[in-house]
């Protein structure tokens, strides 16, 4: 796994095996700057494994993964935070990891946009499922990264917050920033994805720009 400046992510013929099980087979994908990229597929398709390769948490058995030098924020399917710290303390600790942290009002903006304000002073370990997911998302975004990798970022989140989060993420991605979302819920991001990678049985069934992500997803799986 190597860093390649700010040219985005490049996965080249990457395979990942766990014993006798092949989770990914010769997958090639690029994540370019300025995209809202959907990494979609049914359960067991290999999208979470690919997500782990992109985030650097796993290494390919074969092939290679090139990562950008720019800041990358990662959101997890199972929220990852310090359970004994409050929401605001978690954000403060992870903000301090950034080499060049954004202004403090970015934290307040995240709390407001993700509707985390009511829980700001509660212990993270005591939060309900939806708030945990939103805290994990806030932690992924706390250093305002150039690349944002999110694995099922709407788990346990209520409908109203879902629409708000998708709109916020669509607004966040743009010319300079990319958002990659790994999900099986294509409909929730139908208005946001401008590029789609569809995985099925550990291989790429479709990869390219899309106007209608839901139709393209269904077509790729048929």
């Amino acid at each position: 796994m190597v860093s390649v400046g700010d040219a985005g992510f490049a996965v080249e013929t990457a395979s990942k095996r766990y014993g006798d099980v092949t989770a990914l087979s010769a997958v090639s994908v690029t994540v370019a700057p300025g995209r809202f990229h959907g990494l979609v597929g049914p359960n067991g398709s290999g999208k979470t494994t690919l997500f782990h390769l992109l985030s650097g948490l796993a290494r390919p058995t074969d092939g290679r993964v090139d990562r950008p030098d720019a800041a990358v924020g990662v959101g997890f399917q199972r929220p990852r935070f310090y359970p004994d710290l409050t929401v605001r303390e978690n954000l403060s600790v992870f903000r301090s990891f950034a080499a060049d942290p954004p202004p403090a009002d970015w934290t307040d903006r995240l709390l407001e946009a993700l509707r985390l304000d009511p829980a700001a002073h509660r212990k993270a370990g005591d939060l309900s499922g939806g708030f945990r997911t939103k805290l994990d998302l806030a932690l992924a975004m706390i250093k305002r990264p150039r690349y944002l990798l999110l694995d099922e970022p709407l788990t346990d989140v209520d409908d109203f917050s879902r629409r708000r989060i998708v709109a916020f993420l669509a607004d966040y991605s743009g010319e300079k920033r990319s958002v990659v979302v790994s999900t099986h819920n294509v409909e929730a991001f139908a208005d946001a994805f401008d590029r789609l990678t569809v995985l099925a049985d550990g291989t790429v069934a479709f990869d390219g720009p899309v106007d209608d992500p839901v139709a393209r997803y269904r077509a790729a799986l048929e």
């Binding site: 650097g56 948490l57 990358v72 990662v74 997890f76 199972r78 935070f81 310090y82 992870f94 932690l139």
Partner: peptide
């Protein structure tokens, strides 16, 4: 006790 945060820490430091 902090094992749940290890993966995030691995992506940050």
């Amino acid at each position: 006790e902090e094992r749940r945060v290890m993966d995030r820490l691995r992506t940050e430091t």
